[in-house]
Structure formats: C-alpha cells, structure tokens
Design a protein around this nucleic acid. Structure first.
Ligand code: ZN
Ligand code: ZN
Ligand code: ZN
Ligand code: ZN
Lengths: 142, 142
DNA sequence: CACCAATTGAGACTTTATCTCAGGAGTGGT
DNA sequence: ACCACTCCTGAGATAAAGTCTCAATTGGTG
C-alpha cells in the first residue's frame, strides 16, 4: 500500500521548487497501476518534456518512492513503493509483478560477502515464473 | 574452470556451419579475462561484423557457455561459464565479479513461488559490495 | 510586482542493439 | 578438385533508450 499523502512531502525530491511539470509526473506515477517504463510514461505525458520525466523518475527512485525492475535485456520498468528493501516475483507470461516483502536471503548474502571478503552494499533478487492466472488459462485450453 | 576442449562442440551453436568469423568470436570470448560487453567485444574484433558478434553472443548464451550479467542501468556484461545455475558477487567499485557456485536461496524461492501460486521458471540473485582489494586500498590511503 | 536562480523542454547527440539483403563461404556430392 | 546449394556474413540503415545543451520560462521571495 502506498501512502499518497506522502506525495506532498515528496514533490520537491531533491529539487528546491515544486513545479507544475513535476507535479504532473508524480501524480501520474502515483496513480499508475502496475509497472511502466520511462518511455511509456513519456508517451502518456506528451505535455511534459522527456528530460523532465527522466529527471523526476531518477529523483523518485533516489527518494525510494519507486523501485526499478530490470527484466532481461528490456528497458528498466518502474513500480511504486521502493521505500523498504524487498524483492519481486515476476510473471514471465503476462508481466504481473508481486512485491515480496520479506527479504529471506539476507543471511545467505551475509555469508557470501564474508566468504569473499566483500564489504556488503546490497543485493537484488528477482524470481521468475508464471502466475496462477496464466498457468490456469493455459491449462484450461487446447 | 571452463573446459576449453568443449569449444569444438560448441562452435556450431545452433547453426549448421562452423565458420571463420564465429571461430574468432568464440576463441576470443573463451580467452577473455573477466567480463565484457558486446560493444567491447566488437571493438576488439574489428575484422568481425557487429551482427555476427551479437548473433554469436546470443547463441553462446543460449548454449550456456556464457552468462549475462545486468548491472544497474549499464549495458549487459558477459562472462564465461553459464552452464550451471549460479549467482554473482559484484564489486561496485572496481567491477570485479565472483561466481557464487552454490545457489543458497532456492528454498526461499520455492516458498515464495508457492505462496503466490506461481509456477517457477527461475531466479536471479546479484550481490553488490566492495571487494577486499578496494576496501583495503581505500583504508590505506588519504 | 519584480527579480533571479532553479527548472523546463525541443532537439541534437550517444550508446546499444536489431534488421536487411547482396555477396561470400562452408559442405556434401561427384 | 569442383560445383552447386544453401547458410552465413557484414556494411550500413534503422530502432530503441537515454543523456545533454542552453535559451526561454517560472516558482519563490521580499
Ligand atoms: Zn501472469
Ligand atoms: Zn533482500
Ligand atoms: Zn573491487
Ligand atoms: Zn539460485
């Protein structure tokens, strides 16, 4: 669940002014269902320049309002709710994405970092599969 | 450790002919130390066309000879040894990459897939940190 | 309201990757 | 060794994704 009332406090996002174009971008992002690419956002906001869209997305990501999802060789996709550490379960067929709230792998990650003598920065885990809808739909047909 | 004698059997890579350009690409990839991007490979093989380099990389990846490493928003990097499932520990400072042979997270992954009712396809885990060399070097200086 | 620095955005440019198709080269048969 | 047949190659066009520039605009402040 995303706290839309946090929007106001987030509008300035490392800038010093709450401007019109940025409001439009932030409001669109907050209202967006599911994930989107930067270019998709640009296309749906022709009244806002591409540079501003990209700048705002970068800020939103730094502020933890959105998180970036890298799937295969495709363009990054963005998703509301990057505030706390989490992972994603992605449907390879329909593209649905579930947030996995509990990390579940931090012990293993710590162990590995220690084994290699690394000073840990972070980690990224993505799980791929087919969601129940996609599996069900296929099973029913043919 | 990569079995270079497997090279011969790999040269055809889903094609029906073992051609000169492909030999050059495969041999260069096998001899490469560390990871590389497609463009780096192109640059170091001006005698081979870009299309062929990309085609061969795609085949090598499908065959599991190399694995693709996505770091942040940068271009994919390739690395020998994708035959069996594994993960990577990446140094965010110098770019060094360690293979993590043991998966270590498959139980968690299974649990999550079951929880969401997904039919599992696979998963990707990358761990970021600074390697002992980078940490040591920094600690010693300034 | 005026001022001024912060911000915007059109468009050029860069990087990375895919596509096209005429010409070139590997293979198997003879 | 040669031919023929087909697959493969590569120069260059095109596409996709994102960054950069800088003149014009605008929000915030007093
Ligand atoms: Zn699905
Ligand atoms: Zn985690
Ligand atoms: Zn390092
Ligand atoms: Zn694994």
């Amino acid at each position: 669940m995303v706290d839309r009332s946090a929007l106001a406090s987030v509008l300035q996002l490392g800038f010093s002014r709450a401007t019109g174009p940025r409001k439009i971008v932030v409001e669109t992002v907050v209202a967006w269902e599911g994930h989107f690419s930067a270019e998709e956002l640009c296309r749906s906001l022709p009244q806002v320049g591409r540079a501003t869209v990209y700048r705002t997305l970068a800020s939103l990501q730094e502020e933890g309002v959105i998180c970036r999802l890298m799937i295969d060789g495709r363009a990054p996709r963005y998703l509301l709710g990057g505030t706390q550490h989490h992972h994603h379960m992605v449907c390879t067929q329909c593209g649905a994405v579930q947030d996995i709230a509990d990390c579940g792998v931090d012990d293993f990650v710590d162990t590995v970092a220690e084994r290699f003598g690394y000073e840990l920065d972070g980690h990224r885990l993505e799980i791929y599969g087919r969601c129940s809808t996609c599996v069900g739909g296929e099973g029913a047909s043919s």
